[in-house]
Design a protein around this nucleic acid. Structure first.
Lengths: 179, 179
DNA sequence: CACGGCATGTAATAAGTTACATGATTTA
DNA sequence: TAAATCATGTAACTTATTACATGCCGTG
């Protein structure tokens, strides 16, 4: 399950351009897989080379040409096989937590800025997930599962981080009042 | 904040060998940064080249020699600078969720296996975090923050995934009863 | 005697990120 | 007129993963 396979996954739901696929990543995969053009376009080239997708050029008025990709039967089979062989890993890599782990080495205001930034990111993610709830097709189990999984985690974390941030603010205010 | 910087971070708390550092990663960083020997040993070589750490060889009876690394002032300064420039990103990359997103393409038993595997991972992580709670030095704000952050998320997710798994099991049993 | 822990490393490969490069259209 | 959206791609770089390679000690 890498960028290539996820592109195949998107194309299983319908034809799309690289640009469309990127938007799909942003709206539906954002909570578990982030990819930019720099990985999506090369991935599509690779899939084309392997015969997993076909492409047709679509001219547009007043806009750049589009390359519409569609998945082949070979591609579907490859995706199915990849799915079946996927080991269900789940990895977090967080500069935010790395920074917080060494918070004692930093001035309080930088720690607060980091917390605020993270809170913003969590809120943005919640907005996107909420948007997904509205637009999701009913009965799509997988999409629902991953979305609600992310909502569960994000809700809990938002409460946690906000509480900790406020605790720092009040203890800071107390320290100032004493001084 | 990459493997190199986190090694410096570990060495800020005291001298250690590559092997020790790996154990530190496993017990204290596991919930936000995973690294193996294949990245830690090369990282230490790099730090040595830059003069960020010194090394002394320690012979041991009946055991392989150890290389004990200690951080230099240059290394401390570099770590401080890196900390201050760290942008607080937080990234999740989950094959598990990728798989679940396409659950409709898989047989139910594979979905259940994936859920069980993930539940096991969450439980293992909770055990490690609980262990950390016991052994942690009181008053280490950052260590406490990251641990409780992870506990918050993991607790919530464990409840969510377990509930979903049971829902699948009961709806499966009903389907069988009807047939 | 097999397995897990202690201990260090290299080399090949895979993978993704960032910056670069271009350019028209629409909206505020 | 500035910014956002539409649209595609390359190249250099950074980074980490995996497998390989070695070998002793203690425990069950």
């Amino acid at each position: 399950m890498d960028v290539k396979h996820l592109c195949l996954g998107v194309l299983c739901t319908g034809d799309a351009s690289g640009y469309d696929i990127k938007k799909y990543f942003e709206s539906s995969f954002r909570h578990f897989f982030v990819a930019g053009y720099g990985s999506i376009y090369p991935a599509l080239s690779g899939l084309l080379d392997k015969g997993y997708v076909d492409v047709r050029q679509q001219q547009q008025e007043r806009l750049p040409d589009k390359k519409i990709y569609n998945i082949t039967q070979l591609g579907r089979d490859a995706f199915q096989a990849a799915l079946e062989q996927t080991v269900p890993r789940h990895k977090v890599r967080s500069q935010f937590l790395a920074l917080m782990h060494f918070a004692h080495l930093l001035p309080t205001d930088q720690v607060l800025r980091a917390l605020d930034t993270h809170i913003n990111e969590l809120e943005t993610l919640l907005d996107i997930l909420e948007e997904g709830r509205k637009t999701a097709v009913q009965g799509n189990y997988g999409e629902d599962f991953t979305r609600e999984y992310a909502v569960t985690s994000t809700d809990a974390l938002l409460a946690f981080v906000t509480e900790r941030r406020n605790a720092i603010l009040t203890s800071n205010a107390n320290a100032k009042a004493c001084a």
